[in-house]
Design a protein around this nucleic acid. Structure first.
Lengths: 139, 139
DNA sequence: TGTTGACCTTCCCATTGTGGGAAGGTGCAG
DNA sequence: CTGCACCTTCCCACAATGGGAAGGTCAACA
């Protein structure tokens, strides 16, 4: 089948399918005499796997690793579970950072009238933060 | 003062200061006869404002708007509060998406032995998801 | 047969925000 | 005078995706 069909069935855009191939995430697709890429059910299954893991937030690098684990029938399930757990921990970390920011913004918003008046503690804080959230350096 | 000093005092890298200037987030810095950029306390204050708002996760576009609000003494505080609240809502949204993913991954990880055995429900799900989280299309 | 429209191909560009590094000028201290 | 730490601009890279141009292919339809 053509790339358009493979795209429809997998939910991965044709653009991305070509890109994944170009960066080596996917093997080079078979070609028809006219130069068109040719896909079978096997390839579509791989694309769906990629789509699914991308939707779950894994990076292309991680997806690449997961694909390798998937095709290696003998790998211990521990390896897979570890990847999942690392990703969960990563999400937890990011969420906790975002919550800290939310807390700060909520506190600031609470003290701001939010009406016609022009004085605004939010901007005052942005200009000269009292609470030292900002102190955390980038890694 | 030179850009290096301004960088140290504001916590914004020299590289980024130049970049912010180049994209119009900041006005062109004054120049010394030798071509070096010249900064005063005023400019450093602006840089700190940028640093702070960036740390809170505002995009450069939003920072630009916030800078305008900051310098416009007559704007209603409502405008500022609205920006803060929109950002909070955005964070809430992203967090909720991430939590959905976490829930899925936790469920999957729970069913995976995570030992020497090779059978792994996580990969099985990636290949053919039962729970239709993935069904949410991108926007 | 010829045309039209829906495909496909590759190639380049833009995004967002940051860093790395080269090649060259400047300024101060020893 | 030399060396070192600074400054300048310019280009490249990242991650992952989309837009779009220029051109080839194929099937259907008049």
């Amino acid at each position: 089948m053509n790339i358009g069909q493979a795209s429809d069935r997998s939910g991965v855009s044709a653009k991305m399918i070509r890109y994944y191939e170009s960066v080596g995430l996917l093997p080079s697709a078979a070609r028809r005499p006219n130069g068109y890429r040719d896909y079978g059910d096997q390839e579509v299954a791989v694309l769906q796997f990629v789509r699914r893991t991308r939707d779950l937030g894994f990076s292309l690098d991680e997806v690449s690793t997961l694909l390798a684990l998937w095709s290696n029938k003998k790998r211990p399930s521990r390896d897979v579970k570890r990847m999942a757990e690392r990703h969960i921990a990563d999400l937890e970390h990011r969420i906790s950072e975002m919550r800290t920011v939310m807390r700060t913004l909520r506190d600031l918003a609470k003290t701001c009238h939010g009406d016609e008046r022009s004085d605004c503690p939010i901007l005052d804080d942005f200009a000269a933060p009292k609470t030292s959230i900002t102190q955390r350096r980038k890694k």
